[in-house]
């Protein structure tokens, strides 16, 4: 075990520039994935907050009998998407308008006739707050004969949906491209180390080292580089997070990764390092074996 670590660490000393390059590449690829992850996490949270406020307002024709409204309220409350239904009378609507719309307080005070219709206010259950469900519920409400108009923030709901999907897909695509580049670079740096140490590996084979014994230090080297790259990426993400939070104070309560999410990033770095070196070493050992058999003495 000590030998394994000694050999793995030795390669950092032998090729510091190459090692630094692979660590930096892993770090940047994970940094990119991490940044998109942070945006997605915070967007998700913002959406959850906004979605709680997603309301559908159905305006009721004046003169509709109270029993009809009560019956309809019950029917609507039974929709699977609906969390609750509230009735807002004409008087309540006016009182609310006077309270909330300060600019128009005078205008509302002088009114002889209440211009505001009564309405039903619906809130949907979590999971049904996306544009498609909101639209479907609104359509069903329009089917009631006494409902004059249905309002909901259709556009911004759709935009939020799009933004969330786009962030997820973009983060994943760019992250995967960077991850592939990082793995190739790790593979190349390990391959350069392998070529540098080809003679040593040849001698190891001759004195009876198993393939796993030869692979061990290289795999450990790759995994260590991956872990270091992952740590660096989390640190970079945290730096970026701090800078953004300072420059944009209006964004309150921005979230950073939970410890387990940071661990996933570092673990992903380790897998990248391990994968890159496994491919590289495996190919090299197969070639060495094959070449020996093809070479004329």
């Amino acid at each position: 075990m000590r030998l394994l670590f000694r050999e793995a660490l030795l390669s950092f000393r032998r090729a510091p520039v190459l090692s630094g390059l692979s660590i930096t590449t892993i770090a940047f690829s994970l940094f990119t994935i991490g940044l998109f992850g942070l945006v997605a996490i915070n967007l998700q949270r913002a959406l959850e907050g906004l979605e709680e406020r997603v309301e559908i307002v159905a305006f009721i024709m004046r003169g509709t009998p109270a029993e009809s409204i009560a019956q309809a309220s019950q029917d609507i409350a039974a929709f699977p998407e609906v969390q609750d239904v509230g009735y807002v009378s004409e008087e309540q609507a006016l009182a609310r308008a006077r309270r909330e719309l300060v600019e128009f307080r005078d205008a509302y005070r002088d009114l002889q006739v209440n211009p505001l219709p009564p309405s039903l206010e619906l809130r949907l259950r979590p999971g049904f707050r996306d544009a498609a469900h909101v639209g479907a519920v609104a359509e069903r409400l329009r089917g009631f004969s006494f409902i004059e108009d249905v309002r909901y923030g259709r556009e911004w709901i759709q935009r939020l949906d799009h933004l969330r999907n786009l962030t997820g897909v973009l983060g994943l695509v760019i992250g995967l491209v960077f991850a592939t580049v990082a793995m190739v670079i790790i593979g190349v740096t390990i391959r350069l180390t392998l070529l540098q140490r080809a003679r040593e590996i040849h001698i190891m084979r001759l004195v009876g080292a198993t393939n796993w014994f030869i692979r061990g230090p290289f795999l450990l080297e790759g995994a260590l580089k991956g872990i270091l790259g992952g740590l660096l990426a989390v640190a970079l993400c945290y730096g970026g997070f701090l800078v953004f939070r300072r420059s944009a104070e209006s964004f309150n309560g921005l979230l950073f990764f939970e410890p387990w999410q940071a661990a996933v990033i570092i673990g992903f770095g380790m897998l990248m390092g391990l994968g890159g070196s496994l491919l590289s070493v495996g190919r090299h050992l197969r070639r060495m074996g094959g070449r020996a058999d093809r070479r004329a003495s």
Partner: peptide
């Protein structure tokens, strides 16, 4: 195959004209 070759080589001693030392 594989590790069996490694185990065989441990029971052999091999020396070369060019020594092959590290």
């Amino acid at each position: 195959k594989g590790d069996q070759i490694a185990r065989l080589r441990r029971r052999l001693g091999i020396i070369f004209q060019d020594f092959r030392l590290l």
